[in-house]
Structures are given as C-alpha cells and as structure tokens.
C-alpha cells in the first residue's frame, strides 16, 4: 500500500469516529518523516473522562499482526456502520488522547520497524 493511501485511510477512520458526534469544527494535522508519521486530530465537542479513557484504550490496544494484516485493510474504507478505533489501534506505534478546552486532541504515531521516537514529539512517561 502506498503511504498516501495509508494516510487517507487513517484519516478516514479517525475522522469517521469524531464526525459521528457532528462537531462544528475538526482540525487534522500531519507531520511526516521517512520512517513514520504523526497525525493530530482535534474537535470541539465535549467528551467525558470515561469516553477519553475508552478511546485511548482502543487506540493503544495490544498489537495484533494476525488481525491487522488482514482486517486492517478495512481501516477508513468500509464506512457502513460505526467507526472502529481498534482497527487503528492494532497498527499504531503510540497514541495519546487528551482534553483541550471543550474538545478532544488525539495524537497518533505510526511507523515501520525503523521508526525513531526522537523525530517526533512523543511525550515521555510522566511528562504530562
């Protein structure tokens, strides 16, 4: 799969999730490096703490190569029905979910085997 396709599908799935709650504003930011990328999505809808926790849990689910390699192809592609963050969670390197003002900020880092953390702004543990 070309990187452009992958990015389109990632944005499609995560946007599908956030657009379900019909926000008036949605911002998508992308930062690319040779071995990885950082996707940041913000909306202005109110989300409960439980909701943030659920989103973070799904996006940081354990890696499932046997499911990601096959069913992962549905990410951002098959839009009939609810969005499925676990499809993303199986594929990402790291994910942060935080509340900003009245909205939500989702940071997703994705990359290959040569992914280098220091090229991106992944927060260290206890850095928040």
């Amino acid at each position: 799969m070309k990187r452009k396709d992958l990015i389109l599908h990632l944005i499609g799935e995560i946007s599908n999730f956030l657009l379900e709650s019909d926000p008036r504003r949605l911002v998508i930011s992308l930062h690319q490096e040779e071995n990885g990328l950082h996707l940041c999505i913000l909306d202005e809808n109110t989300h409960t703490k439980e909701e943030l926790s659920r989103i973070e849990q799904k996006l940081n689910s354990r890696k499932r190569p046997e499911l990601a390699g096959y069913y992962g192809s549905m990410t951002g592609h098959d839009m009939l029905g609810a969005s499925r963050l676990n499809l993303l969670g199986w594929q990402v390197k790291h994910c942060d979910v935080s509340s900003i003002g009245s909205g939500i900020k989702i940071d997703i880092w994705l990359g290959g085997d040569a992914f280098q953390n220091d090229q991106f702004t992944i927060p260290e543990k206890g850095d928040e």
Binding site: Y70, Y71, S73, M74, H77, D78, M79, L80, G81
Partner: peptide, 14 residues
C-alpha cells in the same frame, strides 16, 4: 490474500 482483502470490502465485514 489478494482476493481475501478485496472481497472483504464487498460486504464490509458483515
């Protein structure tokens, strides 16, 4: 594998 991934989109996992 080529067919499996393609036909998955036919029914979208249903």
């Amino acid at each position: 594998p080529a067919i499996a991934v393609s036909v998955l989109h036919f029914h979208q996992g249903y």
